[in-house]
Design a protein around this nucleic acid. Sequence first.
DNA 1: GTGTTATAGTTACATATGAAACCATTTGCA
DNA 2: TGCAAATGGTTTCATATGTAACTATAACAC
Lengths: 149, 149
Amino acid sequence: MSAESKPDHAPLELERFLPYRLSILSNTVSQAIADDYQQRYDLTVTEWRVMAVLARFDGLSAREVAERTAMDKVAVSRALARLVEAGRVHRGTHDGDKRRSVLSLSENGWQVHDEVAPMARAREREVLAKLDDEEQAWLTRILDKLQPL
Amino acid sequence: MSAESKPDHAPLELERFLPYRLSILSNTVSQAIADDYQQRYDLTVTEWRVMAVLARFDGLSAREVAERTAMDKVAVSRALARLVEAGRVHRGTHDGDKRRSVLSLSENGWQVHDEVAPMARAREREVLAKLDDEEQAWLTRILDKLQPL
DNA sequence: GTGTTATAGTTACATATGAAACCATTTGCA
DNA sequence: TGCAAATGGTTTCATATGTAACTATAACAC
């Protein structure tokens, strides 16, 4: 029990502070999804994001994966090391440029993808179910406007 | 350059996936603010959050700080160790319970708070400036509904 | 062609973080 | 009382993450 104090210092009200609220919400949502596959597939969030991108865009290089996931190249490099090791991603070398890798999901990678993707979508639906249609539409619009921050 | 592929596998479109978008937005916003004070005051985000809570609620225990910041007790313990060491927070012992600490901002802590808080608020305003009044109202409403997830 | 600069990706190091074990104190209850 | 269980807080250990340095290859200038 402690009294609220020092209004003269104009303290920040964390629970109304947008960055703080976003952070809590984002972590809660991401964690809920991660809990679904993390242990079951021994897959981190970053690894899953790499897989999701490769599922849509076959043959990307590591740098392109980094761009599309908004992760830095070191994180991508490490995620790929594990994914290749685990036999979920195949890594070849670009024909005309030996520096670049050519990445794609393996048979196994596709299997994992096809199990995890529906789980992720289901969780997203659960979250969105708390909002009515109008609110969902505004949320999309708001995220679009804030996105290229 | 790679073609979009395998529609039969229904791959996840990351850039339209709510959890992903929230994560990007949250990190971008938090990082922008942290950049303002991180180096200048040698203050991490978690440390700043602890200070913000103590600015509003004087005399909290570490556990209470953890509750109010949605951080786990280990993170709070570490943040407090640094803050006390740096002379920004005073740590006493609870009268009736020697386990509990009694925390408050020091003179120095208040100074830092009074410089950082306006910067944080200014950044928040910058972000919100991208939205019109109606959108801002919806955002608040949406966050309220999603909050107790 | 040769030297410089840029790019793809990995490695090394230092720091951050989370889970579980741990210590001290307090509470509940026989 | 006195002892088991709960609580506040710290420490330990294992893992994650970011920055900078590094290797290899390619592009560019001349």
